[in-house]
Design a binder for these strands. Structure first.
Length: 155
DNA sequence: GCCAACGTTGGC
DNA sequence: GCCAACGTTGGC
């Protein structure tokens, strides 16, 4: 059974349009243990992802992606020139992991955080309660509600 | 750019 | 293992 996730990105560094253009990307730069554990231990090929734009205007769900490669070491942790460099990461103990995702769909409009807050049935979403986690699980019903609503938005 | 929330680090 | 200091996230 495919699982459902929400992954956040600041569109200034990587947006749904970037993913659409490139088709596929590796999700590097996660430096939070809870988010890492979810990627490393829970994510499987075929899982579906809500691609979320954070730290922008408007913030919200921008589209859909799919996991195409399970977790493997995030090489950027061992690159001193990378913004997410971690001196404690090593070849033997990579410490940080990433997955690959592939573009699936861009919604006609961003489904805004303010809109999500108003929907009954989404009130227990991790996004609305633990806003800082950058990779988080989404319930099946939540995922379906969001996709249906987002697709109903006009251009 | 501000700042609240909250995760991480490190001295003890 | 506690907890203060510090750093980061992310909405506004």
């Amino acid at each position: 059974m495919a699982k459902y996730w929400l992954m956040k990105s600041e569109p200034g560094s990587y947006s749904i349009d970037d993913l659409k253009r490139e088709g596929q990307t590796f999700w590097d730069g996660v430096r939070n243990y809870q988010a890492r554990n979810l990627m490393r231990d829970e994510m499987q090929v075929g899982d579906r992802v809500l691609f979320y734009h954070s730290n922008t205007a408007p913030v919200g769900v921008a589209g859909l992606a799919r996991v195409v490669r399970e977790a493997y070491p995030d090489h950027t942790a061992r690159d001193p020139h990378d913004a997410h460099y971690d001196p404690k990461a090593s070849h033997e103990n990579p410490r940080w992991y990433m997955v690959d995702i592939e573009f699936e769909e861009k919604f006609p409009q961003i489904l805004g955080l303010d809109q999500l807050r108003e929907i009954k049935g989404l009130q227990e979403m991790v996004l609305l309660n633990r806003s800082r986690l950058s990779v988080q699980p989404v319930r099946t019903a939540e995922f379906k509600t969001i996709v249906k609503l987002a697709r109903s938005l006009s251009e």
